[in-house]
Simulated assay, not measured.
Amino acid sequence: MKKLVYMLACASVIFFTACSSKNKSEKEDAQLLMQDSTEAAAPQRMQVSDVKATFTFKGKEYQSSVVRRPDESLPIVKNEQGEKFVDNRITLRLTSGGKQVVDRVFTKESFASLVDAKFMKYAILEGLVYDQTTPQGIIYAASVCYPQSDLYVPIKLTITADGKISMTQDEMMEDYQTDSID
């Protein structure tokens, strides 16, 4: 009889523990599901980056700093699937001999004259990087792109020794054929 009572008591404890842990587990799963769906609804953002470079142009040493930050104050971009993305603001600082040559903030709107308005509506400013120096100036490459895709518009910035900036749409990669995309 004692053995039967003991087994019933153990079974009861196991049953109540299983029920309470199941309820707890279901609650945790529900919370995670709600958290995941909340996070999925939140706009996605790129990481902050701060890239520094030092180079020589026309016999002078230059220091470059390019800082990319997601900017909540810019309009949110949606892709065809309805996913939301925070656009970026990029600050370019270029100095030489302790003097400021360039201190400029770029958004995708900075390149509106070079990028088709329809493309611009669904695109973000992805990046800006130092490329090289040429006799014409210091070259940076910028890209305005569809988020999380390979579709982008390459832009070439040329900066003169006195800080004047000119921008042109750069050539697409040779392997990229726009007429082959249907």
Rank of each mutant, 00 (worst) to 15 (best):
L33F: 00
R93P: 00
M172P: 07
E72C: 05
V115A: 01
I124C: 07
F106L: 12
K99C: 01
K22I: 14
G127R: 15
C145Q: 08
T38C: 01
D87K: 14
D175Y: 09
Y62D: 09
Y130T: 00
I165G: 00
D182C: 11
K164E: 06
A142Y: 07
S25C: 12
A18I: 12
M7L: 15
K22N: 10
I181D: 05
M7S: 14
F55L: 11
T133N: 06
P147D: 06
A142C: 03
F16H: 01
Y146K: 15
F57T: 11
V5M: 14
N88P: 07
Q132K: 15
Q63F: 08
D150Q: 10
L4I: 15
L114G: 04
D150F: 09
E109M: 09
A123Y: 02
V101G: 02
D50A: 10
V5Y: 15
Q132F: 03
A41L: 15
D150G: 12
R93I: 14
F106A: 03
K24H: 13
F55R: 15
P135G: 12
V129E: 13
E39C: 07
Q177G: 07
F106D: 01
S143N: 11
I181G: 06
V77Q: 04
I14C: 10
Q81R: 13
T133G: 11
D179N: 04
L114A: 10
M172E: 07
A117V: 05
T168E: 00
F57C: 14
Y122T: 14
G59R: 13
T133E: 08
G127D: 11
C10A: 05
V67G: 10
T56D: 14
I124M: 12
F55V: 09
C10E: 05
E39K: 15
C10Q: 03
Y146E: 07
L32K: 10
T134S: 00
D116V: 09
Q47C: 10
N88M: 05
A161H: 10
R68C: 11
C10L: 15
T107F: 09
Q132H: 03
I155L: 13
E28V: 02
T133Y: 13
K99F: 00
M120A: 11
R45V: 06
A18K: 13
K84V: 00
F85K: 05
Q169C: 03
A123F: 03
A161G: 05
Q132Y: 02
M1H: 09
Y130P: 06
V66A: 12
V77L: 08
M173Q: 03
S65H: 04
S37H: 04
G97L: 07
A18C: 14
A53Y: 12
F55G: 08
Q44G: 09
N88L: 11
E72N: 10
S166L: 09
E28D: 01
S49C: 11
S180D: 09
E109D: 01
I90G: 02
